[in-house]
């Protein structure tokens, strides 16, 4: 067994209930910056690519979390990541706990060995009560991820549906995130 070098990066701490002041200041009436980060993931979203995602984050009491921030990160429709677009920052509504995101459906990505892996949007979540961020992914097709090698290593086939949003028209999606209980969303570490 090889002992790893003792890497220590700065510990995470909760973003707290007032994260809006620093991250989305206009919500708290502070308008001093040139612009707010991540107000839209793509500046140019054509109608035929556009998708709408909304949802809530439920805590262990099944209450929606009203003070969370979600950052999303994704590739474009061709599976390509850029460093100037693809990022969004959303907060959950103070009353309803709902977040909303208008974006484009990301394309499949290609591994170095030529295999294709399913498209997804990364969700990075912080809030009061979360000592470190929770990371999940919204995929689009349950069958696609069931056959994905990455998930085959884990005995979680019955939980994969937590990574799939509800949709009737493949344009409007509801992606709820559950922190605990039977519907607990799959979260990732790297």
């Amino acid at each position: 067994m090889v002992k790893v070098k003792n890497f220590i990066d700065t510990p995470s701490q909760t973003a707290g209930p007032f994260l809006h002041i620093g991250c989305t200041p206009s919500i708290t009436g502070i308008n001093i910056f040139k612009d707010e980060l991540g107000s839209t993931p793509f500046t140019d979203i054509s109608l035929n690519e556009e998708i709408n995602i909304k949802g809530k984050i439920y805590d262990g009491n099944n209450e929606p979390i009203i003070d969370a921030m979600i950052e999303t990160w994704q590739c474009d429709e061709n599976g390509k990541y850029f460093n100037y677009q693809g990022f969004s920052r959303r907060v959950t509504d103070f009353k309803t706990g709902e977040y909303q995101l208008k974006t484009i459906r990301p394309g499949n990505q290609i591994n170095v060995d030529g295999t294709i892996f399913p498209s997804y949007i990364l969700f990075w979540i912080v809030a009061r009560g979360m000592n470190s961020p929770l990371i999940t992914r919204m995929y689009f097709d349950e069958n696609e991820i069931k056959s994905d090698l990455m998930f085959k290593n884990f005995n979680i086939q019955d939980r994969l549906k937590t990574l799939i949003p509800y949709t009737e028209d493949k344009k409007n999606f509801v992606f709820d995130i559950h922190l605990q209980g039977k519907k607990e969303t799959i979260f990732f570490e790297f």
Partner: peptide, 27 residues
């Protein structure tokens, strides 16, 4: 830290290899 009790998952997170979405980011 009381609010962490209902705001933390009960299952261990899935430890996976990072892919393009982790080694890129907004600049």
């Amino acid at each position: 830290y009381k609010s962490s009790i209902v705001r933390s998952p009960e299952n261990e997170p899935l430890l996976i290899n990072f892919s393009n979405s982790e080694i890129t980011g907004p600049l």
